[in-house]
Design a protein around this nucleic acid. Structure first.
Lengths: 198, 198
DNA sequence: TGCGTAGGCCAACAAGTGTTGACTCGTTTG
DNA sequence: CAAACGAGTCAACACTTGTTGGCCTACGCA
């Protein structure tokens, strides 16, 4: 899978680098397992097997299962700067960005799956919302008091989409084309963020 | 195999009834555990302890853990007849009904938690959508071809609300008042179901 | 009164879990 | 070259899981 650890072309040293390589292999395997199996069913043994090493190596490098999860799942939504956009485009921009990030990064599925059954996972999900979604809402909301509520509404719609499309896999939701999703959801988010409160 | 072996329809007391009582106790405890812990962490031992009986009784009555889950979690959304409502009220009616059902019935939380980490749970969730949500969308959608997509959109918004409010417990989402939720979400659902496709 | 049947408990099984410690072996360093 | 170090493996621990079978007990019918 990874390879090229061979000591032939090493400017540095063999064993020194190997640890970094296997550490990465462990993290990659862990992300995959957490994303598809959730926290409880993603066993350290299975992750180690995917990474082609002994389970004890996982413990050596990450302490315990919680530490492995903490190290493997770190989310950066890379949300765009909404203040720089035309005010009427932020809904559309959010949906398209959200779809792209989610589809190219299995970490988000992992975080969602784990957050549902694991307390630490839920808190970590809350952290992503608090540290990355709320600030963006702050950029476009005039009334500071309404920011949490409006950001929360955005989260319900976007996470609901991810849940039914990428986790529960409702056939009609999976069948939706990207353009359809954008066309339907953009006005919703636009309203949640910019419309006067009802 | 089980069920009414006695030929006489006895209202008689005694052991005959006790089994029904403990069966109910098991189901109640199971629902609670599945709702709070998800499938894997809801152990048969814990459920049995909650029901004040031996774990083996669970096996005797429900075969295995999957059978117990199947028996414990059966969802009836009792969705209202949307065709009988003024067309402009169906969004609001859906949100209010959904909130009520979810808050008085922990089965829905159980189903969502299990559906995220368990294949059988995911399929059961799909079944609820297919058998109960789709038909209701059929009542109000003019174009039959658009029914699945529109019902899917409704599901994303409602399940996203439930996910962030009742499972992940995002503080701002939990803080939302029932009226606020209705006021914000009703127009969204109304549009998803009745507006011309964008 | 006696007996069968069913509710219920106890103890145990096999499998799988996270986790630990001792051990091997190649590489780096003095 | 010899010592030290660190990557990696092996085998085992202690525990929990779902699941099973044997046993006791009390009720209801004969």
């Amino acid at each position: 899978m990874n390879g090229s650890v061979s000591s032939t072309t090493d400017p540095g040293s063999g064993a020194r680098r190997r640890s970094a390589a296997t550490r990465d292999a462990i993290l990659t395997a862990a992300r995959e397992r957490f994303a598809t199996d959730g926290y409880e069913r993603a066993t350290i043994r299975a992750i180690a097997k995917d990474a082609n090493i002994d389970p004890s190596m996982v413990m050596r490098y990450y302490g315990n299962k919680e530490g492995l999860f903490a190290a493997a799942v770190s989310v950066d939504l890379q949300l765009p700067d909404l203040a720089a956009l035309p005010r009427d485009d932020i809904g559309r921009a959010l949906v398209t960005h959200f779809l792209s990030v989610w589809e190219e990064n299995e970490v988000l599925t992992a975080l969602l799956r784990v957050g549902v059954t694991n307390q630490a996972g839920a808190e970590r999900t809350q952290g992503v919302f608090r540290d990355q979604v709320l600030p963006v809402a702050r950029q476009v909301c005039p009334d500071p008091e309404q920011i949490p509520a409006r950001a929360a509404l955005v989260a319900t719609q976007l996470l609901g989409l991810a849940l039914t499309r990428y986790v529960l896999r409702f056939p009609p939701t999976v069948a939706l084309h990207r353009d359809e999703i954008v066309a339907w959801l953009a006005p919703t988010l636009q309203r949640y963020l910019t419309a006067p409160s009802p």
